[in-house]
Amino acid sequence: MKIWALAAALAFAWLASPASAAGDPATGKEKSAVCSACHGADGKAIMPAYPNLAGQHASYISKQLTAYRDGDRVNALMSGQATNLTDEDIEDLAAYYASMTKHEGVASEEDDLALGRDIYRGGITAAGVAACSACHGPAGEGNPGASWPVVSGQNAEYAADQLKYFRSGERANDPNSMMRGIAKRMTDAEITAVTNYITGLHAAP
């Protein structure tokens, strides 16, 4: 099945599935003190290797925290932090960060910006890589029903690391290997270009 068709089929399946219980943002704020040490009190990461969480879809945050807790996604720092989280904790934290205003990023003035735009909007036809916008949307706002993340304004370093983890198989919590199938067809230069582009996607030409 082509990547485009698979993406559409998965989106329909997830959109038709029951939604997870909504968390309480106020309670999530009370539980976020430890999180803010890395992700910032305002949901903006303190280091470019960490993800910004402000304005991210609650469904995506919930999915990733559950994956860290249950061992489906492994990271030395996050796996330890998530170990003792209950389902309620996860939903509350997800609701809190989703309620924040998303931070805008700025793409670096590099020669690869045009390449990144082309990949994001049109994919890499020769390598069989679908356009990122097919799942993450023209403005990088993702799809909450499918638990596909907001990518616009995300830290380029963090996003590039994740694509490389998908490519190597170190990260493998993507349904039906969608992201692994895409990333393994991308070079380092292409990954750098597209993640640079999405950082400033809100303002990119």
Score class of each variant (00 low, 15 high):
K2R: 07
I3Y: 10
L6Q: 03
A9F: 09
A21V: 14
D24E: 11
P25F: 07
T27F: 05
T27I: 06
G28D: 15
K31H: 00
A37D: 05
C38E: 03
C38L: 10
H39D: 09
D42H: 10
D42W: 06
G43C: 14
K44Y: 09
M47I: 14
P48H: 09
N52Q: 06
L53S: 07
A54P: 12
Q56P: 08
A58I: 02
I61Q: 02
I61F: 04
S62Q: 14
K63P: 08
Q64I: 05
T66Y: 13
Y68H: 14
G71A: 02
D72Q: 04
V74C: 00
V74K: 07
A76D: 11
S79G: 14
G80F: 04
D87F: 06
D87L: 05
D89S: 03
I90E: 01
L93D: 04
L93N: 03
L93Q: 07
Y96V: 06
S99L: 14
H103K: 09
H103D: 11
H103G: 07
E104R: 15
V106C: 01
S108F: 12
S108I: 14
D111E: 11
L113V: 14
G116V: 10
R117T: 13
I119M: 05
G123F: 08
A126C: 08
A134H: 01
C135P: 15
P138M: 15
G140T: 12
E141K: 14
P144T: 08
S147I: 02
P149W: 08
V151M: 11
S152C: 11
E157H: 12
A159W: 04
A159Q: 04
D161L: 09
D161Y: 09
Q162F: 01
S168D: 06
G169L: 12
G169R: 09
R171F: 07
R171D: 03
D174Q: 04
D174W: 01
P175M: 03
S177P: 01
K184A: 07
E190L: 13
A193Q: 10
T195D: 02
N196W: 03
I198V: 15
T199M: 09
L201W: 00
P205E: 08
